[in-house]
Protein backbone atom coordinates (compact mmCIF):
# COMPACT_ATOMS: atom_id res chain seq x y z
CA UNK A 1 0.00 0.00 0.00
CA UNK A 2 1.18 3.51 -0.87
CA UNK A 3 0.62 6.73 0.99
CA UNK A 4 0.91 9.68 -1.35
CA UNK A 5 0.41 13.43 -1.46
CA UNK A 6 -1.39 14.72 -4.55
CA UNK A 7 -1.06 18.30 -5.80
CA UNK A 8 -4.01 18.61 -8.17
CA UNK A 9 -5.10 21.48 -10.43
CA UNK A 10 -8.68 22.43 -9.53
CA UNK A 11 -10.63 24.90 -11.67
CA UNK A 12 -14.43 25.19 -11.46
CA UNK A 13 -15.12 26.92 -14.79
CA UNK A 14 -13.17 27.97 -17.89
CA UNK A 15 -13.15 31.56 -16.55
CA UNK A 16 -12.03 30.55 -13.06
CA UNK A 17 -8.42 31.32 -12.04
CA UNK A 18 -7.77 27.79 -10.85
CA UNK A 19 -5.24 26.65 -8.26
CA UNK A 20 -3.37 23.67 -6.92
CA UNK A 21 -5.14 21.75 -4.11
CA UNK A 22 -3.43 19.21 -1.89
CA UNK A 23 -4.93 15.77 -1.20
CA UNK A 24 -3.73 12.87 0.93
CA UNK A 25 -4.05 9.60 -0.97
CA UNK A 26 -3.70 6.95 1.70
CA UNK A 27 -3.65 3.16 1.26
CA UNK A 28 -3.41 3.04 -2.53
CA UNK A 29 -2.78 -0.53 -3.79
CA UNK A 30 0.37 -0.84 -5.89
CA UNK A 31 -1.51 -2.81 -8.52
CA UNK A 32 -3.89 0.09 -9.17
CA UNK A 33 -3.58 2.11 -12.34
CA UNK A 34 -3.13 5.86 -12.10
CA UNK A 35 -6.75 6.51 -13.05
CA UNK A 36 -7.93 3.89 -10.53
CA UNK A 37 -5.93 5.76 -7.91
CA UNK A 38 -7.85 8.92 -8.86
CA UNK A 39 -11.13 6.92 -8.72
CA UNK A 40 -10.30 5.86 -5.15
CA UNK A 41 -9.43 9.43 -4.15
CA UNK A 42 -12.64 10.69 -5.82
CA UNK A 43 -14.81 8.18 -3.93
CA UNK A 44 -13.38 9.44 -0.67
CA UNK A 45 -13.97 13.06 -1.74
CA UNK A 46 -17.57 12.24 -2.63
CA UNK A 47 -18.08 10.39 0.70
CA UNK A 48 -16.94 13.46 2.57
CA UNK A 49 -19.35 15.61 0.58
CA UNK A 50 -16.82 17.27 -1.77
CA UNK A 51 -16.71 17.75 -5.54
CA UNK A 52 -14.70 14.96 -7.23
CA UNK A 53 -11.65 15.73 -9.38
CA UNK A 54 -12.81 15.88 -13.00
CA UNK A 55 -10.62 14.18 -15.61
CA UNK A 56 -11.03 12.79 -19.14
CA UNK A 57 -10.91 9.04 -19.79
CA UNK A 58 -12.58 6.41 -21.95
CA UNK A 59 -10.92 3.18 -23.10
CA UNK A 60 -8.38 2.97 -20.27
CA UNK A 61 -6.14 0.83 -22.45
CA UNK A 62 -4.11 3.36 -24.40
CA UNK A 63 -5.99 3.47 -27.66
CA UNK A 64 -8.59 6.23 -27.55
CA UNK A 65 -6.51 9.28 -26.63
CA UNK A 66 -9.03 10.66 -24.14
CA UNK A 67 -6.95 10.59 -20.97
CA UNK A 68 -4.85 13.71 -20.63
CA UNK A 69 -2.99 14.19 -17.38
CA UNK A 70 0.28 16.01 -16.93
CA UNK A 71 1.97 13.98 -14.22
CA UNK A 72 4.90 15.65 -12.45
CA UNK A 73 5.23 18.11 -15.33
CA UNK A 74 5.26 15.49 -18.11
CA UNK A 75 2.17 14.71 -20.21
CA UNK A 76 1.24 11.02 -19.67
CA UNK A 77 4.09 10.83 -17.09
CA UNK A 78 7.79 10.28 -17.67
CA UNK A 79 7.33 6.62 -18.63
CA UNK A 80 8.01 6.21 -22.37
CA UNK A 81 5.40 5.27 -24.91
CA UNK A 82 2.30 5.07 -22.72
CA UNK A 83 -0.85 7.09 -22.04
CA UNK A 84 -1.96 8.37 -18.61
CA UNK A 85 -4.34 5.43 -18.26
CA UNK A 86 -1.42 3.00 -18.70
CA UNK A 87 0.60 4.47 -15.85
CA UNK A 88 0.80 2.11 -12.89
CA UNK A 89 1.03 3.02 -9.23
CA UNK A 90 3.86 0.53 -8.75
CA UNK A 91 6.05 3.11 -10.53
CA UNK A 92 5.69 5.40 -7.50
CA UNK A 93 7.15 5.04 -4.03
CA UNK A 94 5.53 5.38 -0.65
CA UNK A 95 5.60 8.99 0.50
CA UNK A 96 5.86 10.49 -3.03
CA UNK A 97 4.27 13.81 -3.91
CA UNK A 98 2.61 13.73 -7.33
CA UNK A 99 1.72 16.87 -9.30
CA UNK A 100 -1.32 16.44 -11.56
CA UNK A 101 -2.14 19.22 -14.02
CA UNK A 102 -4.17 19.44 -17.25
CA UNK A 103 -2.60 19.34 -20.74
CA UNK A 104 -1.67 23.01 -20.95
CA UNK A 105 -1.72 25.16 -24.10
CA UNK A 106 -3.41 28.49 -24.84
CA UNK A 107 -5.31 26.67 -27.59
CA UNK A 108 -6.53 24.05 -25.05
CA UNK A 109 -8.84 26.02 -22.73
CA UNK A 110 -9.54 24.26 -19.43
CA UNK A 111 -13.16 23.17 -19.19
CA UNK A 112 -12.98 21.92 -15.64
CA UNK A 113 -10.11 20.75 -13.39
CA UNK A 114 -8.04 18.39 -15.56
CA UNK A 115 -10.34 18.40 -18.61
CA UNK A 116 -9.32 20.61 -21.52
CA UNK A 117 -11.05 21.42 -24.80
CA UNK A 118 -9.01 19.80 -27.57
CA UNK A 119 -11.39 20.55 -30.43
CA UNK A 120 -8.71 22.73 -32.07
CA UNK A 121 -7.15 19.41 -33.14
CA UNK A 122 -10.43 18.28 -34.71
CA UNK A 123 -10.54 21.50 -36.73
CA UNK A 124 -7.00 20.83 -38.00
CA UNK A 125 -8.14 17.40 -39.20
CA UNK A 126 -11.29 18.86 -40.74
CA UNK A 127 -9.15 21.35 -42.69
CA UNK A 128 -7.48 18.59 -44.73
CA UNK A 129 -6.87 15.32 -42.92
CA UNK A 130 -8.91 13.29 -45.38
CA UNK A 131 -8.96 12.10 -48.99
CA UNK A 132 -11.76 12.61 -51.49
CA UNK A 133 -13.02 9.35 -53.02
CA UNK A 134 -16.11 8.36 -54.98
CA UNK A 135 -17.71 6.00 -52.52
CA UNK A 136 -20.05 4.40 -55.04
CA UNK A 137 -17.22 2.97 -57.12
CA UNK A 138 -14.26 3.07 -54.78
CA UNK A 139 -11.43 0.82 -55.97
CA UNK A 140 -10.16 -1.95 -53.71
CA UNK A 141 -7.36 -0.34 -51.67
CA UNK A 142 -5.24 -3.48 -51.98
CA UNK A 143 -5.20 -3.26 -55.77
CA UNK A 144 -2.73 -0.36 -55.56
CA UNK A 145 0.86 -1.50 -55.09
CA UNK A 146 2.51 0.48 -52.24
CA UNK A 147 6.23 0.10 -51.47
CA UNK A 148 6.76 -1.51 -48.05
CA UNK A 149 8.75 1.45 -46.59
CA UNK A 150 5.92 3.84 -47.57
CA UNK A 151 3.26 1.60 -46.10
CA UNK A 152 5.29 1.30 -42.89
CA UNK A 153 5.85 5.06 -42.64
CA UNK A 154 2.16 5.76 -43.25
CA UNK A 155 1.23 3.20 -40.62
CA UNK A 156 3.65 4.66 -38.06
CA UNK A 157 2.11 8.10 -38.59
CA UNK A 158 -1.41 6.69 -38.46
CA UNK A 159 -0.71 5.36 -34.97
CA UNK A 160 -1.37 8.89 -33.63
CA UNK A 161 -4.38 8.80 -31.32
CA UNK A 162 -4.82 12.57 -31.25
CA UNK A 163 -4.30 12.88 -27.51
CA UNK A 164 -2.45 16.22 -27.62
CA UNK A 165 0.44 15.21 -25.35
CA UNK A 166 2.90 16.51 -27.96
CA UNK A 167 1.31 19.96 -27.68
CA UNK A 168 1.16 19.84 -23.89
CA UNK A 169 4.82 18.81 -23.68
CA UNK A 170 6.07 21.42 -26.16
CA UNK A 171 7.68 24.50 -24.58
CA UNK A 172 5.85 26.54 -27.23
CA UNK A 173 2.58 24.59 -27.30
CA UNK A 174 3.26 23.80 -30.94
CA UNK A 175 1.00 21.30 -32.72
CA UNK A 176 3.64 20.32 -35.29
CA UNK A 177 3.97 16.65 -34.34
CA UNK A 178 0.23 15.99 -34.36
CA UNK A 179 -0.31 17.89 -37.62
CA UNK A 180 2.75 16.30 -39.22
CA UNK A 181 1.56 12.81 -38.28
CA UNK A 182 -1.78 13.47 -39.98
CA UNK A 183 -0.16 15.07 -43.05
CA UNK A 184 2.39 12.24 -43.34
CA UNK A 185 -0.08 9.45 -42.88
CA UNK A 186 -1.94 10.35 -46.07
CA UNK A 187 1.04 11.92 -47.86
CA UNK A 188 2.91 8.61 -47.88
CA UNK A 189 0.14 6.79 -49.74
CA UNK A 190 -0.85 6.93 -53.41
CA UNK A 191 -4.43 7.77 -52.41
CA UNK A 192 -3.15 10.89 -50.68
CA UNK A 193 -1.18 12.31 -53.61
CA UNK A 194 -3.84 14.32 -55.52
CA UNK A 195 -4.52 16.52 -52.47
CA UNK A 196 -1.02 16.48 -51.01
CA UNK A 197 -0.20 20.19 -51.52
CA UNK A 198 -3.67 21.41 -50.70
CA UNK A 199 -3.73 19.28 -47.55
CA UNK A 200 -0.48 20.48 -46.04
CA UNK A 201 -1.30 24.13 -46.73
CA UNK A 202 -4.79 23.91 -45.26
CA UNK A 203 -3.78 21.95 -42.17
CA UNK A 204 -0.80 24.16 -41.33
CA UNK A 205 -2.92 27.29 -41.80
CA UNK A 206 -5.59 25.93 -39.48
CA UNK A 207 -2.88 25.01 -36.98
CA UNK A 208 -1.59 28.60 -37.07
CA UNK A 209 -5.09 30.05 -36.82
CA UNK A 210 -5.81 28.06 -33.64
CA UNK A 211 -3.02 29.87 -31.82
CA UNK A 212 -0.57 27.02 -31.35
CA UNK A 213 3.09 28.03 -31.03
CA UNK A 214 6.00 27.48 -33.41
CA UNK A 215 8.38 24.55 -33.36
CA UNK A 216 11.88 25.20 -32.00
CA UNK A 217 13.21 21.71 -32.76
CA UNK A 218 13.58 20.61 -29.14
CA UNK A 219 11.73 17.32 -29.68
CA UNK A 220 9.91 17.30 -26.34
CA UNK A 221 6.85 16.18 -28.37
CA UNK A 222 8.48 12.97 -29.58
CA UNK A 223 9.65 12.14 -26.05
CA UNK A 224 6.13 12.59 -24.61
CA UNK A 225 4.16 10.90 -27.41
CA UNK A 226 2.52 7.66 -26.20
CA UNK A 227 2.73 6.28 -29.75
CA UNK A 228 6.37 7.43 -30.17
CA UNK A 229 5.57 9.28 -33.40
CA UNK A 230 8.88 10.40 -34.94
CA UNK A 231 9.87 14.03 -35.54
CA UNK A 232 10.94 12.82 -38.99
CA UNK A 233 7.34 13.54 -39.90
CA UNK A 234 7.85 17.19 -38.92
CA UNK A 235 10.89 17.44 -41.22
CA UNK A 236 8.79 15.96 -44.00
CA UNK A 237 5.94 18.40 -43.32
CA UNK A 238 8.40 21.34 -43.39
CA UNK A 239 9.56 20.12 -46.80
CA UNK A 240 6.04 19.52 -48.12
CA UNK A 241 4.81 22.89 -46.85
CA UNK A 242 7.75 24.77 -48.36
CA UNK A 243 7.30 23.16 -51.76
CA UNK A 244 3.52 23.61 -51.70
CA UNK A 245 3.60 27.25 -50.65
CA UNK A 246 6.31 28.16 -53.15
CA UNK A 247 4.23 26.48 -55.88
CA UNK A 248 1.13 28.31 -54.69
CA UNK A 249 2.80 31.71 -54.35
CA UNK A 250 5.20 31.74 -57.27
CA UNK A 251 4.21 29.24 -59.94
Amino acid sequence: MLNLTLKVWRQKTPQDQGSIETYDAKNIPEEASFLEMLDIVNERIIESGGEPIHFDHDCREGICGACSLTINGVPHSKEKGITSCQVHMRKFRDGDTIWIEPFRARAFPVIRDLIVDRSAMDRIIAAGGYIDVRTGSAVDANSLPIPKPDADAAFDAAACIGCGACIAACKNSSAMLFTAAKVSHLGHLPQGQPERDKRVLAMVRQMDAEGFGNCTNQYECEAACPKEISVDHIARMNRDYTVASLKEQLV
Partner: peptide, 11 residues
Protein backbone atom coordinates in the same frame (compact mmCIF):
# COMPACT_ATOMS: atom_id res chain seq x y z
CA UNK B 1 0.80 30.33 -26.92
CA UNK B 2 2.19 28.44 -23.95
CA UNK B 3 0.90 28.87 -20.41
CA UNK B 4 3.29 27.70 -17.69
CA UNK B 5 2.89 24.56 -15.63
CA UNK B 6 2.97 25.00 -11.87
CA UNK B 7 5.34 22.04 -11.76
CA UNK B 8 7.61 22.63 -14.76
CA UNK B 9 9.61 19.75 -16.19
CA UNK B 10 11.79 19.25 -19.24
CA UNK B 11 12.09 15.78 -20.74
Amino acid sequence: ASPKYVHEQTI
